[in-house]
Design a protein around this nucleic acid. Structure first.
Length: 191
DNA sequence: CTAACGATTGTCT
DNA sequence: GACAATCGTTAGA
């Protein structure tokens, strides 16, 4: 029986997220074993891009599931999600970090100066290592189940101003390629 | 049309 | 630990 991406991408992001750990994503000649992800729900999740409804940018989040939702942040970085929503019900899982398991030379050339461990250790780093950019928004990624992750941890999502307390971040316990924790950047008055 | 901001990262102290 | 880089998207006038 053939397993497709949609089979395990569709559904509640909170259920899909831990399921993705250990899966292998291949793009741009590089393969990554996912070690860290974050769930983003629909209109009821203040931390989600879909919180304020459908816009040109987040349209892909509203389905169909199994596609990449790619966005551009901070004027220089890309982040990629796997869409879980369908029938106009937005949901996605942010691909936060992974271990490069194939095409490492290609990944190194895209991220010169980085240690192998850090090649895809963070959402923007992962996108760069795989060569993912806005042109990949809405595409169906090459994603297959990998070895099951032995132990999964969960905790608060990273970098959010709102709903930062929800424990919707999942990672492979003890894996060195999980991104280092950083608290949300505080907003300073006047800038 | 304009302005404020961000699901980050690299570099410096 | 602190801060700059840098620009598409969004909200509001």
């Amino acid at each position: 029986m053939r397993v497709t991406v949609v089979d395990w991408a569709e559904g509640d992001p909170l259920e899909v997220a831990p399921r993705l750990l250990g899966a292998v994503l291949t793009h741009g000649g590089v393969s990554v074993r996912l070690t860290e992800v974050e769930a983003y729900a629909g209109p009821l999740d203040p931390g989600s891009h879909a919180y304020r409804g459908r816009t040109p940018r987040n349209a892909v989040m509203f389905g169909p599931p199994g596609r990449l939702y790619v966005y551009f942040v901070y004027g220089m970085h890309h982040c990629a999600n796997l869409v879980t929503g369908s029938d106009g019900d937005p949901g996605a899982v942010l691909l936060r970090a992974g271990e490069v398991v194939a095409g490492i030379d290609r990944a190194r050339s895209r991220r010169p100066g980085s240690s192998d461990r850090d090649l895809a250790r963070g959402p923007a780093r992962l996108c760069r290592a795989l060569g993912i950019d806005l042109g990949d928004n809405g595409v169906r990624p090459e994603l297959v189940p990998g070895e099951q992750v032995v132990q999964i941890s969960r905790g608060p999502r990273v970098g959010l101003r709102h709903a930062a307390d929800l424990p919707w971040r999942f990672w492979a316990t003890g894996d060195p390629t999980v991104s280092p924790y950083r608290p949300a950047a505080p907003r300073r008055a006047g800038r």
